[in-house]
Amino acid sequence: MANTIVNKILLVAGFASLLHAAYSAAHYRTYLRLTEQEFTKLPLDIVVQTVVSLIVVIYNVIQIVGNFKEIRATVDMQGKSWDTLGNFPSFYTFNHRGKALSSTYVPEEESSESGKSKMDLIS
């Protein structure tokens, strides 16, 4: 966790450094224009700063994106028990005749249509 915070700070610092390099390059171009010199190449420090901050930013982006997952399916399944893997919520049944075994069960004495069909299902 602390590692990602360090990476984020480095990422922001890299972006700031890149922006600073851009500003320096623009400044250098303005200076050349004012002194009426011909542009041949950027000064070495701006080039070095740009390349270094580029590498820092890319490295930290890769670190931030998180760890890769193992692609073999067996590795993912090894840590799970059958109770987890064979769990199908669509097949849950709560209303079945096993409730007649409960000590608190009171059989319904009804003559209505719905009660009859319920008793049919239970028996």
């Binding site: 580029l54 930013v57 890319i58 982006v61 994106v65 998180g66 997952k69 193992e70 073999r72």
Partner: peptide
Amino acid sequence: IAYSEAAIRNNISAVEYCRTSMAAISGCA
């Protein structure tokens, strides 16, 4: 060998994210 599709897709999308960022930042540089 059985591959887990979710893990493959997760890895590929992570690499894709890196690639897009890399393209933008190296374009800036």
